[in-house]
Design a protein around this nucleic acid. Structure first.
Lengths: 340, 340
DNA sequence: TCCGCAAGCCAAAGCCCTTTGAAAATTTGC
DNA sequence: GCAAATTTTCAAAGGGCTTTGGCTTGCGGA
């Protein structure tokens, strides 16, 4: 059942039927109802490919994720984000395309997406402090929004970011208030803007108390469990071991816990941990949270960013959207006063 | 630059140009070369939407993932799978569509995908022991492959599965060989076929030694960290506590470790753990593995399943593909002989 | 009574490619 | 040198929708 057949049945032109179904005003109300009912009755659905061809719009959004052996973008954080974004896309009838490409073929991929008009927009993940993708996308005139920001020049594109700096400042201050002075930072990869800002927040808190910044307490890596474990093991062996740790992900924090416990120590008593909590769905604890954390749902971010992108696509001239989300500090069992 | 323009430039018909570019035999070799070079020169790329409309093929594959608040399909296992599958799709120029839909709208979504021909095939994730999606897809005549199997009747569709039964039998036997007799099973949701088979394997091993099956040692839930933690806490409080645990995922196993350590016990000494290891990318340990495990890469499964599906799409009459992958047993630090 | 203006509807062009069926050009066979 | 068999090329018909520009109505105002 296609438009032609349906319009024949109705004794109307294709134009009118199309207009009636798409809510254009220049069609009589009785006609519209008649058309809509016939469409339902004969189970008519417009063909997507034809629609796309005719309109030059694809009703689809892409997420380009670089895949490199050493540092996979497809991780639990990503999947939670996708779950949120996907929900929004589904709600508005958009398709979500995931392009897994080798790290150095990203540019090619974006160019191809733009040229072929296969998608109406893209979401950029994990921006670096300086990220060439931004300029590329601007030049390609492909609508985009960024999850995160770049170090500078983020005035002229839409983004949604968590206030990483204030979050980590707050987390660190919380530990300082508990009397901790030697506080380690297990940060993400610091070429990435979010990690860079987190470090700034951490350092601001430390120096804010007149304490020195000890580079041997600062680490930077992919935020995975073994990272937390390994570093903590090492830290605990130091002569002047830190009494607290701020970490960038619950995954890493779990590694910290394992290391601490394995050394016969107790988390929250012998070592305090504050983590950034993306509220990953597969790590949700009922009851009192395990970790004291600054938290912000990455799934919500996915939902919202998708919304922003769709608005942007729908109405390109509407101006930029830039949202900075503050986090909540939630006190769990992983922190306690410094023991002398 | 479209086909019409290009053919005008070349003084050829659209037919010939199209054929030349698509490798049809009925075009002269000199002409073909001339066409190909012109295409490159003028940066001609055929429009995807037009191609789709004309051919009724979309060169895309969908993954329909149900999203319910209680049990998210989008989890780290899924994201690793996707990373693998996405790699294959990219290699063959296919698009990957992820449709996040409410649990009870899956059928509608599949019907819509089939009707609209928006994709050439789908991959079915996490089949239940009896799964209505299979019959649905058969009736819709949408090519599909299944990651996993159903309890019965899996003779007439393509699938790739890990030998869950033998894996868990082996894992359990390994523990039995170490002298453990009270072994708990922290299984996935047993309505799902993979978990059901795992339980069969576990039980086969136990009864194979003439030991009784204790239902109070068998658990079934989403395979997340808190699950492992909570259950282990409870188990360790039993009068007749188990001395070993078989668990369905490293995520859960990490929870087990945390609980054990928190009780001042040592993993591998006071409690042995064998886990099924999907080799999730963000949990890879260098060196001696933390967990003794039966392992099989879920990312490899993604790669292979995508291949199978693409072959199937390319050549629907080629017959079914059914692969049963055996796992490796890798001995790590989490197991040891039973202490008297 | 006639005109002008909306409101409602339509035919046809356009989007860009594939593919069928046939014609034109070339080669082969005798 | 001519008919037959190939090879090469083409015009045109889809595929199914949107959208432009224009053509009928019906009605209020003059």
């Amino acid at each position: 059942m296609n438009l032609k057949e349906l319009s024949n049945i109705l004794n109307l032109s294709q134009t009118t039927v199309s207009r009636a179904l798409n809510g254009y005003p220049e069609v009589g109300e009785k006609t519209r109802i008649r058309v809509i009912e016939a469409a339902r009755k004969y189970n008519y659905h417009p063909s997507y490919s034809a629609k796309r061809l005719a309109m030059g719009k694809s009703h689809a959004v892409a997420h380009v994720v670089p895949q490199s052996p050493k540092h996979s973008m497809i991780n639990p954080h990503f999947s939670d984000f996708i779950a949120g974004a996907g929900e929004t896309y589904a709600k508005f009838g958009f398709e979500m395309l995931i392009s897994v490409v080798p790290y150095d073929e990203q540019e090619k991929c974006y160019r191809e997406l733009a040229r072929s008009k296969r998608v109406d927009g893209v979401i950029v993940h994990g921006p670096y402090k300086e990220d060439p993708r931004i300029e590329l996308l601007k030049s390609l005139e492909l609508p985009f929004v960024v999850h995160g920001r770049t170090e500078e020049g983020c005035k002229d594109f839409s983004w949604l970011d968590v206030n990483n700096r204030s979050s980590f400042k707050r987390a660190t201050n919380f530990l300082l208030d508990l009397g901790h002075e030697r506080i380690a930072l297990l940060n993400g990869i610091e070429e990435m803007d979010f990690a860079y800002r987190r470090r700034l927040g951490y350092e601001a808190a430390i120096t804010g108390r007149g304490l020195p910044i000890d580079p041997t307490l600062i680490f930077s890596s992919d935020m995975i469990e073994p990272y937390g474990y390994d570093v903590t093991k090492r830290l605990l062996k130091m002569k002047d071991a830190p009494t607290a740790i701020v970490t960038s992900s619950v995954l890493t924090a779990l590694g910290v816990v394992r290391a601490v416990q394995e050394c016969g120590l107790q988390i929250g008593r012998d070592l305090s941990v504050v983590t950034f909590d993306d509220e990953l769905s597969f790590l949700q604890y009922p009851g009192v949270p395990l970790f004291t954390s600054v938290r912000s749902s990455i799934m919500d971010a996915g939902r919202r960013l998708a919304e922003i992108l769709l608005e942007q696509i729908d109405n390109p001239d509407k101006g930029l959207v830039q949202e900075l989300w503050e986090t909540d500090l939630v006190v769990g069992q992983s922190t306690g006063p410094r023991r002398i």
